[in-house]
């Protein structure tokens, strides 16, 4: 039972000395300040690697980029001091293009099913679940898949590399495109239905055109991710010291180029790896920024 009776006057006298002043001698106040400092410090610590990476990219990579030949020359062999990553740049572009050709139409049509025709069906939830599983797939497993389905039968090729990248792009495209389609206002669809359109016509003529900017954003994010991926290419497209002539040949890529030249004992060749990294990061960041700009402009037009 209570030892303080209900009607006992409050222990606080009316004119008690009240100390409102901010004071660090109060443990609570000091502790508060300490934790704020620590979390701010954590943020600074987390940004140090970013600054360091960017610094290294510029300080070690920029010098070599002033020699235009690095964009057109073939990779150095032995103790070569020259050379470049021309074929790697070509390989990356070709494989990302292959991956996009495979995954973009596929992904958008799947998203159309999820957002328009399937919606709450069991099929749709199973497919969404599969897409989410693909999102968390380790990138090297995409390479193993491409290896099992293609390389074991037709040998290493840029096409196999493109398939590996496509597997990684697919979930990004499906999920962002579905999101984009769902954002199309209902009154637009209703207007089209009111004119006697079939569901397909509504989708192709009204919903998809309206959603295009946001879908493009999703595609670009997928492309940015694919362009930087290394693991799925290591044993599918592998590497090559020559230009790519046929799709079914092995090919170099910027990412694998960086991997190959990261640990070589020759200063000039490591610099080339940094230069390739700078190009790759610039490529990836540019795509990311463009994607964000497109979304922002699309929203400004609404």
């Amino acid at each position: 039972m209570s030892t303080i009776p209900l009607d006992e006057p409050s222990e606080r006298p009316f004119e008690e000395a009240i100390d409102f002043d901010y004071s660090l001698t109060r443990w609570r106040t000091l502790f508060n300040l300490l934790l704020t400092g620590l979390s701010g410090l954590a943020t600074v610590v987390a940004l140090i690697p970013l600054i360091s990476v960017l610094y290294m990219l510029v300080s070690h990579g920029l010098a070599r980029l002033t020699e235009v030949s690095v964009f057109t020359a073939l990779p150095p062999t032995g103790k070569d001091v020259g050379g470049g990553f021309g074929n790697a740049l070509q390989g990356t572009l070709v494989m990302v293009a292959v991956a996009s050709l495979l995954s973009v139409p596929f992904g958008i049509l799947v998203a159309v099913y999820l957002a328009e025709f399937g919606k709450d069906s069991t099929t749709a939830s199973v497919v969404r679940f599969a897409a989410k599983i693909l999102t968390g797939l380790p990138s090297i497993i995409a390479g193993v898949f491409a290896f099992a389905i293609l390389v074991m039968h037709t040998g290493r090729s840029s096409f196999a590399g493109g398939v590996g990248l496509a597997v990684l792009m697919l979930p990004t495209i499906i999920l962002t495109a579905e999101e984009a389609l769902l954002q199309v206002p209902r009154k637009m669809r209703e207007a089209a239905y009111g004119l006697g359109c079939t569901h397909t016509q509504v989708v192709l003529r009204v919903v998809l055109p309206t959603a295009i900017p946001n879908i493009v954003t999703g595609v670009m994010l997928g492309v940015a991710r694919a362009a930087g991926e290394t693991a799925p290419l290591l044993f599918t497209a592998a590497f090559s010291y020559f230009w790519l002539n046929k799709l079914m040949q092995p090919t170099a890529s910027l990412a694998v180029f960086i991997y190959r030249y990261s640990g070589v004992p020759y200063e000039r060749q490591v610099e080339l790896a940094w230069a390739a990294s700078l190009v790759l990061v610039t490529l990836v960041l540019t795509i990311n920024v463009l994607a964000q700009l497109i979304t922002r402009r699309a929203h400004a037009h609404r």
């Binding site: 004119e15 009240i18 100390d19 409102f20 002043d21 901010y22 004071s23 109060r26 609570r28 106040t29």
Partner: peptide, 20 residues
């Protein structure tokens, strides 16, 4: 003013105010 103290005076800790 809360009694004789201005709670918006420069050195006041808002946390201490809310306790009262």
């Amino acid at each position: 003013f809360f009694r004789s103290k201005d709670i918006y005076a420069p050195r006041v800790d808002p946390v201490a105010v809310r306790r009262h």
